[in-house]
Design a protein around this nucleic acid. Structure first.
Lengths: 126, 126
DNA sequence: TGTATCAAGTTACGAATGGTAACCAGATAC
DNA sequence: GTATCTGGTTACCATTCGTAACTTGATACA
């Protein structure tokens, strides 16, 4: 989300992953991909997110131009968040990764179980 | 890298981003994509990584089946890391995201500057 | 025989980040 | 005047990140 170390300066993919790699951004993006949504509606629909995390995530996405924020002059005021074109294009590009993940999730799980089993055996420990 | 909260259980893309979203995994993957490499060689070539972070990153990648670890029976023993087929396919799928990042980095930077400028002006503050 | 070095890590510990729970503000409804 | 709705913020704790120092086992050098 924030730059973690000086390595990021010239690496575009780290620049992206720093803001997509956190737990919530993708979940929020994919909700907003369905259409504009208000703060509390997102809070209800993004399973497990807290107010603070939603607030932080939305502000980061807004800062990076992925999400627009519009205050509706009502009482109590309502705030509508929506994907920008940039956000939509990012979300589209994530689909390749999502496809990979869906296809290979069983392999990853299997590898992990196998590794854990190997490491659990003292006989095989290095 | 590790599951961050219970939300991950059934979401494949979070499952992937949890292990690709950290600062180092992609850098290590992309080095290994060039060919097998030993620990200290990676340490030198992955700019800014520490021994601990390289160790942790490699172990996670190995556990998830992205990287293989081979101990060469020499003195002192050398350890060669290489991408597995699974790791190679992941790396390939990352390319779409990398292309997006490269193409849109200017837009993101511009959005960020614009946001920061707006927020720096007390007159425009909410 | 003792010292230095190299590989590939691990351990200990302080700093930064992530996450939860509680609180806040303004307005309206009862 | 109390409760409720909105959209947050603050304080605080737990986890994770990152750095620096140490470890192990073997070999080379003197």
């Amino acid at each position: 989300m924030a730059p973690r170390n000086p390595v990021n300066h010239a690496c575009p993919i780290r620049d992206v992953l720093d803001r997509v790699g956190d737990a919530w951004s993708v979940l929020v993006l994919s909700e907003l991909a369905k259409g504009p949504c208000r703060f509390n509606a997102l809070l209800r629909v993004v399973n497990g997110i807290s107010q603070r995390m939603l607030s932080v995530t939305l502000r980061t996405l807004e800062r990076d131009g992925m999400v627009s924020r519009r205050v509706l002059p009502l009482a109590p005021p309502q705030v509508e968040y929506a994907l920008t074109d940039l956000g939509q294009s990012l979300f589209a590009s994530l689909s390749a990764l999502k496809d990979w993940a869906t296809a290979h999730q069983p392999s990853v799980r299997a590898a992990r179980s196998s590794y854990d089993a190997r490491m659990a055996q003292p006989s095989a420990a290095a």
